[in-house]
Design a protein around this nucleic acid. Sequence first.
DNA 1: CTTAATGTTCCCCA
DNA 2: TTGGGGAACATTAA
Length: 237
Amino acid sequence: MSARFTSRFVTPGNRAKLARQVAGRRIETVTRRGKFIVIGLDSGGIAVHLGMTGKLLVAGVETEHTHGVFTLDDGVLLYVDPRQFGRIEWGHTRVAKLGPEPLEVGLAEFSKRLRGRKTRVKPLLLNQAFIAGLGNIYVDEMLFTAGIHPLTHASRLSAVRAAKLHRAMVETLTLAIEHRGSSISDYVDADGNRGNFQMLHRVYGREGEPCATCGRPIKKAVVATRGTHYCPVCQKR
DNA sequence: CTTAATGTTCCCCA
DNA sequence: TTGGGGAACATTAA
């Protein structure tokens, strides 16, 4: 890969360096780990995090929110990110610090990782070093499925409830992937198609609507600076 | 005009 | 050392 950058925002302070580092290198692998797109080069590699509104587009048309341009042998790869919460960084340092993949970690390992964690279950699930890749929508949905209140202390979950949470995590993500993700405002897949899972959300974005299980209104609160949706009747502390 | 948004990091405090 | 809370980042849409 030969690369050129017109980026005004990549990782703060290192974009000239990054352009130098990728110049002339060949892309050998493209994989995913947690929320990162991991690109392996013939020497070294880069990690891309799309934040909330980021996109990587092959041969797209440059828009006002194009913050990075990789010149490839046969086209361009654009990094577009209106809110600029995303990052492109040299190396896989942050990727190495991620917790296990939610669809790979077994119940035994999951339960073991929960043990001794004093924080509340919602922020713990959002912690990428605990489990990689879980975001706000899916954490709210899986806690509802498991019947666990978002403010429950992780260390106080019984073995049975930990197993429920593990099962809910796998079920929620598997179903969401089947429905190609949740398109609430910005999300589209690599082909530009919106997902449908938002239609199956049972708590996220449904404040005041009746709970699918008990009919009482879904509540919304702020937990760890994130909007948190839950059923106060079905989800127990 | 104000608020909140699919995310993460940093700082201050207990 | 761990964790909670809030601010910050930048833009858009309701």
